[in-house]
Simulated assay, not measured.
Amino acid sequence: MIEAAQFVEAARERGFDWYAGVPCSYLTPFINYVLQDSKLHYVSAANEGDAVAFIAGVTLGAQHGRRGVTMMQNSGLGNAVSPLTSLTWTFRLPQLLIVTWRGQPGVADEPQHQLMGPITPAMLDTMEIPWETFPTEPEAIGPALDRAIAHMDATGRPYALVMQKGSVAPYELKDSGRATKREERAARDVSRAVAADALPTRNEALQRVIAHTPVNSTVVLASTGFCGRELYAIDDRPNQLYMVGSMGCITPFALGLALTRPDLHVVALDGDGAALMRMGVFATLGAYGPSNLTHILLDNGAHDSTGGQSTVSPQVSFAGVAAACGYASAVEGDDVGLIDELFASPLLDGPRFVRVAIRRGTPDGLPRPTITPPDVKTRLMRHIATAGTNEGAR
């Protein structure tokens, strides 16, 4: 058994200062220790997949050798499969995973862990995530972290430490790190109830976004599907990234980047289907989102890239959700001019949100990006290494 401080301090020496995850009783000492240190950062995610995507965003924006850790119970691997297989693996965005081993064979545990325990190693192996058991002796901590870093640096992919019961001594929680409730702001709905064929197109909306996002001070992260493909077709700029897979992960990904790079204005382009898939992240953005994060949701009420099947977005006030979750401003409507108004408005004390209803349909022959995910990631990282100051993005 080790002390939480022994691992966290060894990790800090190696650049790990960002943590995110969902608690497990095995992780309690760990999380409690991180919460007490103002120089360490912990984000309490709504689910484990959001935590993985958030730390991927941290990795994207990391400077000076900084690194991130995602912590979860092994049951949460199910929630994390999508970003672990189509975000961190595909884009080569490494992170250290600490996964608890509930239901470990031979260790008595609750019935819900009866299946997950035995299959945890196989799940990690199947996702091509190398792993070893979490160190339980002080002298084993450094070598374990060094092996993880060596793999992460060589491959650009995650490495996991699987924590068995009783690996870390108790550490008392002195301050829960409870998020301060932000001032509530009412959502604003300025919909004109126009006919479906009179709604703006995705192309028109994306043209407005491009016009307001200077290359040297903003980053535009586009959700999976036609949103990213159409943005690429209009103008493939070095300050843009096109998500593939990882549906619903663009906003936690953007949050990680925005928090690590406050000098950049980060714009997350979302879709209604993706937002509905991971609506819990609205609360995370409302609690932790900084002023340099803007969330734009283009809502056509359909899964356009899979044949146009309807979503349930007509039942949802996305601006109402954003406002209730603590966004600094939240507006929705069917006028593409809302995007102009958003960027013309001053930055506030938290993230801004706008949902624009758009027309269904996509231009014929819409190309897929020819730049590969690792290459678009590398291009963006090189670009933001010399970019900065979000003043011009207002």
Rank of each mutant, 00 (worst) to 15 (best):
A4C: 14
E9C: 07
R12H: 13
E13Y: 00
W18A: 04
A20K: 05
S25A: 06
Y26K: 01
T28D: 13
Y33T: 00
Q36D: 15
D37V: 00
K39E: 15
Y42K: 01
Y42I: 01
A46F: 08
D50H: 12
A51M: 07
A51Q: 09
A53C: 09
V58P: 04
T59K: 01
T59F: 05
G61Q: 09
H64A: 13
G68R: 03
V69G: 02
V69W: 02
M72Y: 04
G76R: 00
P83C: 12
L84W: 02
L87Y: 03
T88N: 08
R92G: 00
L96M: 13
I98Q: 00
W101M: 02
R102W: 05
Q114I: 03
L115H: 09
G117W: 01
P121V: 03
A122W: 08
I129Q: 02
I129W: 00
P130S: 06
P130G: 03
T133P: 07
P135R: 03
T136Y: 01
A140V: 01
I141A: 02
I149M: 08
M152W: 03
M152E: 15
M152P: 10
L161F: 08
L161S: 06
L161E: 05
V162Q: 01
M163H: 04
M163V: 05
Q164G: 14
S167H: 09
S167C: 07
V168G: 11
K174G: 15
T180A: 14
K181G: 13
E184A: 15
A186Q: 14
A187N: 12
R188V: 15
R188D: 11
D189K: 06
S191H: 08
V194L: 10
A195F: 03
A195K: 09
P200S: 10
N203V: 08
A205F: 07
A205G: 11
L206T: 06
V209A: 07
V215Y: 00
N216A: 15
T218S: 15
T218Y: 05
A222W: 11
T224A: 06
G225Y: 05
C227L: 10
G228D: 06
R229G: 02
Y232G: 07
Y232R: 12
A233I: 06
A233N: 08
D236W: 13
D236N: 13
R237A: 08
P238I: 05
N239A: 11
N239Y: 01
M243G: 05
G248V: 01
C249R: 03
T251L: 14
P252S: 10
F253D: 01
G256V: 00
G256W: 00
L257T: 01
P262M: 12
H265L: 10
D272H: 04
M279E: 07
G280W: 05
F282V: 04
G286I: 06
G289I: 02
N292T: 13
L293T: 07
L298M: 12
A302H: 11
G307F: 11
S310K: 09
S317K: 09
F318P: 02
A323K: 04
A323W: 05
C325N: 09
C325Y: 02
G326N: 09
G326R: 05
Y327W: 12
D335P: 14
L338P: 02
L338K: 06
I339V: 12
D340C: 09
E341V: 03
F343R: 11
F343S: 12
A344P: 08
D349G: 13
G350F: 08
R360H: 08
G361E: 14
L366T: 11
P367D: 13
R382C: 10
R382P: 02
A385E: 15
E391H: 10
G392Y: 15
